[in-house]
């Protein structure tokens, strides 16, 4: 699939449960009209969207992508089987990528503990990062290949089980002034958005995402947790995102997931995904981007190559 036309305005927000910012940021866009809402990341709880409706105010229509996918799979067994096979292949690829990635990150950590002349250390740091970036790129390439094979073989948009829903979605989106993506299970969210080609149905339309919804708007979806129970967390690329917010990587819930006082981890995260800017979006954060420039910022942090996190500025820089 081709990259869809970028939105006129993009809003990236942190988690909304305790310090909501979505309504304020969206109202600041001055839009008029209904809002199309995606809560597919909530999976079976997709319909539990009352808090978001209250935060947005006005007319909100939930696109019900999770339920629509269930209906499509029930109606089209071939689609369901092919989809399940693709998901299995993606999981396998993620597992193998993770095996290599953990070793590469461990090597980077070992290198960073060594003492050597500064010039040599700088070269070796860069070589370690290049290896990690290469793994990320290889994994993304594998994901693309698997998606292309699925789309070529299955032609999902041509199948009545999907086309019927796409027609309805196109009508709803055409009448909406804004698309809002809620968070939740980020792989499910991305999967359902891709299944129905939602981004392609609303070219140029302003879009807002919070938490996991902000992650999928970026070019790459980066999964991260510095302290999971199973040991040191290795941030990993899940897949291509929707690509509507190029040049940024969104990391919501940093207060729970990131050790921002760990300079080495912060530095690796920032440098690994450069030249994209790595934004930490704590609760209470909201960033509005218009024509690629940040025009309104609340509470977001920019991770830097020197291992610090600094307030992200309204001019798009630190």
């Amino acid at each position: 699939m081709n990259r869809p036309e970028p939105p006129h305005a993009i809003v990236l927000c942190g988690a909304q449960r305790f310090d909501p910012t979505l309504g304020r940021a969206v109202r600041a866009l001055g839009l008029d009209g209904p809002v199309a809402l995606v809560t597919a990341g909530f999976q079976e709880r997709e319909a539990e969207d009352q808090d978001i409706r209250a935060e947005l105010g006005g007319t909100v229509e939930n696109l019900r992508l999770h339920a629509r996918a269930d209906e499509a799979f029930a109606a089209d067994a071939e689609l369901r089987a092919a989809h399940r096979e693709r998901q299995g292949a993606l999981r396998h690829k993620q597992d193998f990528y993770r095996i290599r990635l953990e070793h590469a990150l461990e090597a980077q950590h070992v290198v960073s503990q060594r003492r050597a002349p500064a010039a040599i250390l700088a070269e070796e740091h860069e070589a370690s990062l290049a290896e990690i970036r290469q793994l990320d790129a290889y994994h993304l390439g594998q994901c693309s290949r698997i998606h292309r094979a699925f789309e070529t073989a299955v032609q999902p948009f041509e199948r009545p089980a999907i086309a019927r829903h796409r027609d309805e979605l196109a009508r709803i989106l055409a009448a909406s002034s804004l698309l809002v993506l809620a968070g939740g299970h980020v792989a499910t969210l991305l999967n359902r958005l891709r299944l129905f080609g939602v981004a392609e149905l609303c070219p140029g339309k302003p879009v807002a995402g919070f938490s996991g919804g902000a992650m999928v708007l970026c070019e790459r979806v980066v999964l991260f947790h510095d302290s999971p129970p199973q040991g040191p967390g290795a941030a990993e690329v899940l897949d291509h995102g929707l690509g509507l917010c190029p040049g940024y990587v969104a990391l919501p819930q940093p207060e729970m997931r990131l050790r921002l006082d760990d300079a080495e981890r912060v530095s690796v995260m920032a440098r690994r995904f450069a030249p994209a800017r790595v934004l930490a979006l704590p609760s209470g954060a909201a960033v509005t981007l218009e024509q690629g420039r940040a025009t309104r910022v609340e509470g977001a942090l920019l991770l830097t190559g020197d291992g610090t996190s600094v307030p992200f500025g309204p001019k798009g820089g630190a």
Partner: peptide
């Protein structure tokens, strides 16, 4: 059990951002 089971079967913690 926590570190052992989550090592064998990592939960969706890395996947869920609400």
């Amino acid at each position: 059990l926590r570190e052992g089971l989550s090592w064998l079967f990592p939960g969706p913690l890395m996947m869920v951002y609400e």
